[in-house]
């Protein structure tokens, strides 16, 4: 890994100390138990070697005889196996949409940059929790895949730094392939602008949930995508398809705002139904505030559970 002239790691710029100063006060709690090797704050998804007894179950052929509760056999003359609920580390994978639409910027940071900041921050947070961090970037296909590992944080940052939005994107195909790829449960952080029909998006995301992954969805949009504050009639070019349409913004604005709002609402509703955490992030808003608000809501949800 190369270092720049200031002796900083590439990608280190994503770890904004100001952001981390606020985010670090919170604990990132996985919603589901993830199996792992390092004890952490997460509850392990599997019963195994842990200090917190969970329950007994009858022995079945193939169980490790070391887990048989011999004291209970002595009392009942039946074989029971002890099960423990153990805290462990988890896989934290960033699924980063780098389709061409993500490079859009109306003046501030692009959605791609904003998403990269976001991924880096949360990756760092996960690393501190001793979770394994990985990243998958995709457009219409998977572009880069860094498997989750405790040592891959630098690679994650590097991947985020090198990500370029060059090709049109499509959620369905790459997400389906990812779903086949994941063997272990973990936390999946999906960052995208979700330019597709809500049903199609949900269909693409659902397979990720099949393994019991905890899926967090960040919907990143530029303020112009939300407000459509253009004045002059111009030809608008679709960054994905390169189609051009002459547009008179004054006459389109209200309808556009209504449509995008409807889209966001629809996504929020559908993700909520699927118990998927969804957050709409505006690239004009400070990054730390977005993370803070999300993690706050996340913590609340954990307490409720």
């Amino acid at each position: 890994m190369s270092h720049d002239s200031r002796g900083e790691m590439p990608g280190a710029r994503f770890v904004d100390p100001k952001i981390l100063a606020r985010v670090g006060n919170l604990e990132l709690l996985a919603k589901t138990v993830v199996d792992g090797f390092i004890n952490g704050l997460h509850r392990a998804p599997f019963f195994g070697a842990s200090i917190d007894f969970a329950e007994h179950r009858q022995y079945v052929a193939g169980d490790d005889i070391r887990r048989v509760d011999w004291k209970l056999w002595a009392r009942t003359d039946r074989y029971y196996v002890k099960q423990y609920e153990a805290d462990t580390n988890t896989n934290f994978t960033v699924l980063f949409d780098i389709s061409r639409s993500m490079k859009f910027s109306s003046g501030g940071v692009s959605k791609l940059e904003y998403g990269a900041f976001l991924g880096a921050c949360l990756g760092y947070l996960a690393t501190r929790q001793r979770d394994r961090v990985g990243i998958i970037t995709f457009d219409e296909d998977i572009v880069t895949h860094v498997p989750p590992s405790a040592k891959h944080f630098d690679m994650v940052l590097h991947t985020l730094d090198r990500a370029k939005a060059e090709k049109p994107g499509h959620l369905s195909a790459p997400l389906h392939r990812m779903a086949e790829h994941f063997k272990r449960r973990g936390i999946l952080l999906l960052i995208s602008d979700f330019y597709d029909e809500p049903e199609a998006i949900l269909d693409a995301i659902k397979p990720l949930k099949f393994l019991g992954n905890d899926l967090i969805v960040f919907h990143v949009l530029d303020p112009q995508e939300i407000n459509f504050d253009y004045d002059e009639a111009s030809a608008f070019e679709d960054l994905e398809s390169r189609d051009q349409i002459p547009v008179v913004p004054q006459s389109f604005r209200d309808q556009y705002r209504s449509l995008i709002q409807e889209h966001v609402t629809s996504l929020r509703t559908k993700f909520s139904e699927q118990r998927i955490d969804y957050a709409l992030l505006n690239t004009s808003e400070p990054l730390d505030r977005a993370l803070f608000s999300y993690l706050s809501s996340r913590e609340k949800m954990m307490r409720v559970r």
Partner: peptide, 27 residues
Amino acid sequence: RERKRVIEFPSLMFVQKIPYQSVRRRR
């Protein structure tokens, strides 16, 4: 005149859904 100012936009999926009058477009 409209072509000389091309504004790149992430996606026109919503724009395409909006019916508009060609007269206004060509005004």
